[in-house]
């Protein structure tokens, strides 16, 4: 079942990739609706794209589990991660094209593995901080704890590794001479990704509001600890399994 779903998912990603390419080319043919369609497709592509691994959903889910938060803070987390993710991709693309003059993907393949590992190491440190926080606030038995500045650390650590999808989109726009449209499309794509990432956090948030958790203080504490362990496991995974440096 998973593999057939995954094939459909890959085909859907491919559809957006092909449609975006086509509409970027339509700009030069004088199509007035192409730009609007690019922005709409970029948003939808972002939503779909972020459903895949590597965009911070697991980290957000683990963090929200460890630090029950208001809905507003969950959205803040999701959207900020997506924006940092897109900005780092834009930076890689622009530096690669204008300064180093290699394709962004080549630079991405060089910088990504160490970035992954650095991010993983810091995520592990963050998890120890979260463990301390959970221990300190162990007497809080329900609903939520106070919002914590560590969420901005999560934003940075999750978003610092650039998104290859945004890199590909921006680079393509640059090669066609539509850098400004590419940057705006990247922004719309990041909004779409932010929605998906936030939804992941909201699912956990809704689970925390469930009757089981609210009426059982011990479950509340256990889930917070589980959240910390998830974050720690992710950090270890990133540290030990960076993206490979093969050509593609």
């Amino acid at each position: 079942m998973f593999s057939s779903l995954a094939i459909s998912f890959a085909e859907a990603n491919r559809y957006f990739n092909a449609e975006l390419s086509s509409h970027f080319r339509s700009i030069d043919e004088g199509s007035s609706s192409a730009i609007v369609l690019i922005f709409a497709l970029s948003f939808a592509y972002g939503v779909l794209h972020a459903l895949g691994p590597g965009h911070g959903k697991a980290l957000v889910a683990g963090y929200v589990l460890a630090n029950p938060s208001k809905k507003m803070h969950v959205f803040q987390l999701g959207f900020l991660i997506a924006i940092v993710h897109a900005i780092s991709a834009l930076l890689v693309t622009l530096v690669a094209h204008y300064l180093i003059q290699v394709s962004a993907m080549k630079l991405f393949r060089s910088v990504n593995p160490p970035l992954f590992q650095i991010s993983g190491a810091f995520i592990i440190l963050l998890s120890f901080w979260l463990l301390y926080e959970v221990w300190q606030s162990r007497k809080i038995s329900k609903e939520r704890v106070n919002p914590h500045k560590s969420r901005f650390g999560v934003v940075l650590l999750a978003g610092i590794v650039p998104c290859p999808g945004v890199i590909t989109l921006c680079f393509f726009a640059i090669t066609l001479g539509h850098m400004e449209i590419g940057i705006i499309a990247a922004f719309f794509m990041s909004l779409g990704m932010g929605l998906s990432i936030s939804l992941a956090g909201l699912l956990v948030h809704a689970f925390q509001k469930s009757r089981l958790v609210v009426t059982q203080p011990r479950w509340f504490w256990v889930l917070r600890l589980l959240g910390v362990l998830c974050v720690m496991a992710l950090g270890i995974f990133f540290l030990l399994n960076p993206v490979s440096s093969r050509a593609f």
Partner: peptide, 23 residues
């Protein structure tokens, strides 16, 4: 409802592939 939420949580962290190159 609880099962749905738990399933949703699992999906939130699931490993749905997201390729960047299409051949």
């Amino acid at each position: 409802m609880k099962k749905l939420l738990l399933l949703g949580w699992i999906c939130a962290v699931s490993l749905f592939a997201h390729p960047h190159v299409f051949l």
